[in-house]
Simulated assay, not measured.
Amino acid sequence: MMNGVTIGQAAAFVGVTVKTVRHYHKLGLVEEPERDSSGYRRYGSDELLRLVQVRTLATAGVPLAEIGPLLDADAEQFTTALADVERQLTARIEELTARRDTLHRLADGDRALLPDRAVALLERMSGLGFIPDYVSAQREALVLARVLVPEGYDGFLAQLEHWLDDPEYVDLTRRGREAESWDPDDPRIEELATAMADHYLAHRTLLGNPTSLRAWANASAQYRLINNHRRDQAPMAARLTTLTEAKLRAAGVPIPRQ
C-alpha cells in the first residue's frame, strides 16, 4: 500500500490548484516530498499540514514572501508579525473603501470631483433658473479652484452661498449672461458693471472673508487661469467681469489682475 497522496489529491484536499501547490514549492514555502519507488511524489500528513497553513495565511492576506518566516517564527514573533499584517490589511481596506466611494461618486457625476457643499451650490444655481451653460462653467471653475487655490476654497464656497442668497445679485448675474447678445459697444455693459461693483461695495460679504481674499490675492496666476476659463465662449460676460473688477480695484478691493 502506498503512503501519501498525489499532488492532485493534496491540492484538492487543501482547496487549491496543482499550479498553486507547485508555486508554493517554487517559493520554498512547502518542501517537495521525495519520489516513491514508482517515481511519484507522495504528500504525507506533514506536507498537507504545511499546505493548509500556507493557504490559510495567504487567504488571510499575508503576502507570500512573508509566510515562510512567519511559519518558522516562535510564538511571540508569530503574534507580532500577525499584528503587523493586520495593520497592513486595515490600511489596505481603508484604501479600497476610499476607492469604492470614489467610484460611487463617479456614478453621481459632480461628486467625484467636488465636495457635497459645492454640488449643493450647483444644484441651487439650476434651481434659480441659471442656464445649463452657466452652471457648467461654474462647475469647471469650482473644480479648478479646489485644485489651484485650496486654501481659499472654503471661503470661495461661502462667497458663492452669499451670492445665491442675495436676490439682487442673482438678478444682476442673470443680466450679465444676457449681455452675450448685446453689441460690444452697448452702453448697458458699462452700466451693469457699475451696478455690480456698487452692489459688491454695499454688501461686503459678497467679496469674501479676509482669509479668502488674501488667499486669492496671493494666487494671481491661478486666479487668471480660473477667471479666463471659457473666456472665448462668453466674451461679453468676460468684458463685464473685467470692468467690474477694475471698478472694485479702484475702490481698494484687493482683486488680482488679469
Rank of each mutant, 00 (worst) to 15 (best):
A98Y: 01
R99N: 12
R100P: 00
R100H: 11
H104R: 13
G109I: 04
L113K: 01
L114R: 01
R117V: 10
A118M: 08
V119P: 06
L121N: 04
L121V: 14
R124D: 13
R124L: 13
R124C: 12
G127Q: 07
L128Q: 15
G129H: 00
Y134E: 15
Y134G: 02
S136Y: 10
S136H: 13
L142P: 08
V143C: 09
A145C: 12
A145P: 00
G152H: 10
G152L: 10
Y153K: 01
A158K: 03
H162C: 13
D165S: 15
E168N: 07
V170D: 07
R175F: 03
G176L: 00
G176S: 04
G176K: 02
R177P: 00
E180S: 01
P187E: 04
P187L: 08
P187F: 10
L192M: 04
H199I: 09
Y200N: 01
H203A: 05
T205R: 14
L207T: 05
N218M: 09
S220A: 15
S220G: 10
Q222K: 03
L225Q: 04
L225F: 03
N228S: 15
N228E: 14
H229V: 05
R231D: 13
R231H: 11
D232K: 03
Q233P: 03
M236S: 11
